[in-house]
Design a protein around this nucleic acid. Structure first.
Lengths: 337, 337
DNA sequence: AATCAAGATAACAACGTTGTTATTCATTTT
DNA sequence: AAAATGAATAACAACGTTGTTATCTTGATT
């Protein structure tokens, strides 16, 4: 039913190996026959059989991604960008939404050249390691806890940058608004850094714990925080989604950003600059994360035991100053407790 | 590097074809050798090479899904369930997050046995049809507009059920809260049905248009709607996400559901019963959609030009009464305009 | 003891590619 | 004119499976 190189060969009156070479633009076949074959292939609707290619070449040109059905914005942007980066290397991205274990099963059957696993706080993944597979694995978002290559952001450092930026602007009452859910190690690292940094500056940490990371959670928490008497002059937000909620809350309470409230948000994504009010951010630019992740994946995929590749990357965050932060207004400033 | 049946054969001292048969549990090989081979395979960490299997069997046992990076809850649940259903048929689900055209490209290379495309309002998909592929395609969520097999919910009918239920309970002021974005045909069908049904009952339709389908949009719209003087006694919500927003709004305004406000929501998902207040819903149970979709996909995948399969399915919605609706309270009822 | 059946295993072709090696044929070189 | 060269193409093996066919045992039947 489907067209193979043999069918083309017959039509063209050449051997099938000539067709193969012509399609791969080998210098071993004459220009004129090459053109003829290419034309025929197009006409006949030829599509190479990847199973056969894979069988002989040992490459699938696919990267499997374990995608823990996330609904948050930032990871969703990240995976989109990684996909784009991988396309540049001629790789195709395939997602599996199963739990890690069974996703690995799927990929064992499908044999992508490498697997990318996103850390998911709902997965008790540690017990299951190491996974039963011989496909190289890259973990995103969790350093130090897996035997596998990892790429991650120095989250703690990002938060420290935020604290320093705000104290540098004269702020003393700086609250942190973020997820404190039980097992989410990514969030924990940020919170620990915040507390440490504040204490080292002799400031009182004020953490607003919330259960989930949705925008509305940020809104509710911010309303509560800002409506109280001794409100902070600055907030560090744990994510883009939360920040949107905080902005809504501030608008509702008629608080001027940044005059009455400075905001620094984690998550360095383009959307931050496109909000009604451009937000000062800390974090690694999501495009850079994507670039580095894709690069590392491709290295891992090419199996050459190249030895020397650095496969425990922690990316350096930066602070990007935008319109949401300014000097603390002395008049509006509360006394530190 | 990787273990093949030939390696096992050598270890076991039998021919590789015997190994193949043993692994597939053929009756043609002795029980004792079968056991020996199975054991060896396990020990040596054998994994069948799917490329080879596919090459000879012409089946990939995979279904490709074009997944338009959706962040809404319901489609996300749906795809999860479809995945589970397909596993029962031994199929594996692979997602591609590319735009339809390039997702098709990916799948052309990977050759799943069928492709499922989710209708996405952001895709101007119609111009591109028909797609360049010979893999069978199933469309979800858009009937009548594609030449491809389709599975869909009778959305209009669902909304009519909602209107009838509410009028049957004596409600006359019934608002519809849903997305009216430009090009979203799925939403349009619901709105049209709502208007028609209301008019046929001599009631004045009241549509609250919103731009997006996120929970917060529902919240904002509901606050505006309910805080006004002549508020409706019932709301029909266009989706689960919106409904959550509406519930929050009602709580904030101290409106009792259902005494002061009845709610019927589109989207028949289990989560509806698990909210603080179980919600009356209309729609096709998401598990049923998943079941029927998987069933149809498998039929399409098995290529047999079975002729007789019905490949334009529209599912019948049902109304599930829960705690969010009750008789209209005469006292609280506004006069219809 | 020679023949037959059957049960068990081995051998082989095929799937659609790629890469290597062999063949053909027209040219150039002697 | 015979030999050497080189370009173009053909032939073939290999990748790891599956399914069909062939071969070899072993024990039962005559």
């Amino acid at each position: 039913m489907t067209v193979t190189i043999k069918d083309i060969a017959q039509q063209a009156g050449v051997s099938f190996s000539t067709v193969s070479k012509a399609l791969r633009n080998s210098p071993l076949v004459q220009e004129s026959t090459k053109r003829k074959i290419l034309l025929l292939a197009e006409e006949m609707g030829y599509r190479p059989n990847t199973a056969a290619q894979r069988l002989v070449s040992k490459k699938s040109w696919a990267i499997g991604v374990v995608w823990p059905s996330v609904e948050r914005v930032t990871p969703s942007i990240l995976i989109t960008l990684i996909n784009e980066e991988l396309e540049k290397y001629n790789y195709t991205t395939l997602l599996s939404m199963n739990k890690i274990e069974s996703a690995i099963d799927v990929f064992n059957r499908f044999q992508p050249d490498a697997i990318l696993i996103f850390y998911d706080r709902d997965q008790s993944f540690i017990e299951q390691m190491p996974y039963q597979t011989n496909i190289p694995i890259l973990y995103y978002g969790i350093s130090g806890l897996t035997p596998y290559p990892t790429i991650d952001v120095l989250r703690g450092k990002a938060i420290r940058l935020a604290v320093k930026h705000l104290t540098g602007l004269g702020h003393r009452r700086i609250a942190y608004l973020g997820d404190m859910a039980h097992s989410d190690l990514l969030q924990k690292e940020k919170i620990a850094a915040y507390e440490e940094e504040m204490k080292s500056l002799d400031l009182l940490p004020g953490i607003v714990p919330i259960q989930s990371m949705e925008s509305h959670d940020g809104y509710v928490a911010a309303i509560k925080l800002l409506a109280s008497g001794k409100r902070p002059t600055a907030i560090i937000s744990g994510s883009y989604d939360l920040t949107r909620g905080i902005i809504r809350a501030a608008a509702e309470l008629k608080l001027d950003i940044p005059k009455q409230l400075s905001i620094v948000s984690y998550d360095h994504i383009p959307q931050m600059a496109e909000l009604e009010l451009p937000i000062t951010t800390v974090g690694v630019e999501v495009a850079e994360i994507a670039r580095r992740t894709a690069e590392l994946l491709v290295q891992l995929a090419s199996k050459e035991p190249d030895a020397g590749i650095d496969d425990h990357i922690r990316l350096e965050p930066v602070l990007t100053e935008r319109a949401s932060t300014c000097r603390a207004d002395e008049g509006d400033m509360g006394s530190e407790t």
